[in-house]
Design a binder for these strands. Sequence first.
RNA 1: CGGGGCGUAGCGCAGCCUGGUAGCGCACUUGCUUCGGGAGCAAGGGGUCCCCGGUUCAAAUCCGGGCGCCCCGACCA
Length: 492
Amino acid sequence: MAKDITPRDSDYARWYTDVVTRSTLADYSPVKGCMVIRPHGTALWENIQRGLDGMFKATGHENAYFPIFIPKSFLAREAEHVEGFAKECAIVTHTRLKAVEVDGRRTVVPDPESRLEEELIVRPTSETIIYSMFAKWIQSYRDLPILLNQWANVVRWEMRTRLFLRTTEFLWQEGHTAHATHEEAIEEARRMLEVYRTFAEEWLAIPVLTGTKTESEKFAGALTTYCIEALMQDGRALQAGTSHDLGQNFARAFDVKYQSAAGDWQHVWNTSWGVSTRLIGAVVMCHGDDDGLVLPPRVAPVQAVIVPIWRNESQREAVLAQGRALCERLVARGIATRLDERDNVNPGFKFADWELKGVPLRLELGPRDVEARQVVAASRLDRSKTKLGWDGLEEAVAAKLDEIQAGLFERARQRREQATRDVETWDEFLEAIEEGGFVRARFVPDPEVEAEIQQETRATVRLVPLDGADDPGPCIRTGRKASGRVVFARAY
RNA sequence: CGGGGCGUAGCGCAGCCUGGUAGCGCACUUGCUUCGGGAGCAAGGGGUCCCCGGUUCAAAUCCGGGCGCCCCGACCA
């Protein structure tokens, strides 16, 4: 059916790229590893932002903005943090260009005279610069907690990139908080993990597992990294969000201290948490099909599209007049609705076009429907068609959208259930990993053993379930006594 | 950084082996007929054939060098 989209089962990676580019979410940029987020993709990101931002505000956070440039020396202060990010930083060394001629061609080179004394790092994440500011702002326990978030771009010079999933520059939000006690910080990190879980499931209709990362997978500089992990249709896992208990690591590195009620000085306890435009990749891979994008109604830039159908000029007038009236009513009700008035393409083309772009609900309006005072509603979830009368159309459409939202989540949840297996032995493990999906196995986390397993199977521990410790037995790899199961998968 | 592929019209490609008028489909423009699942006919417009150099009467095509991008692995949200 869909033209120019590679079917999922013939080449999933190619399908993904086809869908992202053809649906006009994003395009490749002239700079390797970077992408242009086109209006459709930006509108989707804005809806994601709006949803999350509301949830951050509701949990007491405020937005702020910190600079993109970080003094090089800052990054060196927290040992593990340097280790984790040093390999992927972009560095600003000069502040000017100079026009020169090379082989008779006009070009520009960095002006050697503008070399920076202290080079600047383009932020790969903002812990260092934010906590350096916290040190200035915090004196007393009365200044705590500080609960901040910023919406920003960051740069990580990755070797291999993929639209939305891993690009050199990406958009995200990063929350940064400071607390008086460790208990409070842990509570915060877990609260935000729960915000992410809720957002992923209720807004993006993506079921996620929650848990903690093992030592080898956790954020560089954190005590504990909590994460939400989703499963894509090809059986690979995708880390969709992380929340870190940073302990006092950064507080010590940047000397962030407060005076307690008792009068003594203590380092604060920090958390940080983030989700990125990768969520868009998750939506594409979780819900998309061979016809293109399938967007959850709650974040879809266009929730319903009215496709008018006519045979002649007088029908065209009548259908369009009704289409405009219905569109206005739906918009007034808060449903993002578009009327496709294009007259250079026929209805069949429009159907396919809006399906490609993932619009959850299509409302067909032709002469027969005008006659019967109805529209034919076609669901992007399963192509099912329903006739909806003009009276009370707003409620009927809203109900349909809710139904699609719920249906998407349920379908994704079932896919995940079917792709989740418990295994007891190493052989079963190998077989299950080869099949794809989440593999739950008893395991004693150990960086060396994990590296071995990854080497041999390309699978990693995706998470240690928060409540999964009560299932003792032998570790699948070493036979050591494991307290419970962890979740393995091959991941993006 | 290793392995593979590709740079020719806005997009997707053929032509290259065997050098000689730069082509096809889609898109675009105009007109008419169409329109309930990606319309038809007719007429048009559009090119530093990635870059630099070499061979040749003649290079998209042959030779040398460069650059870029995509895909697959190792690193990562």
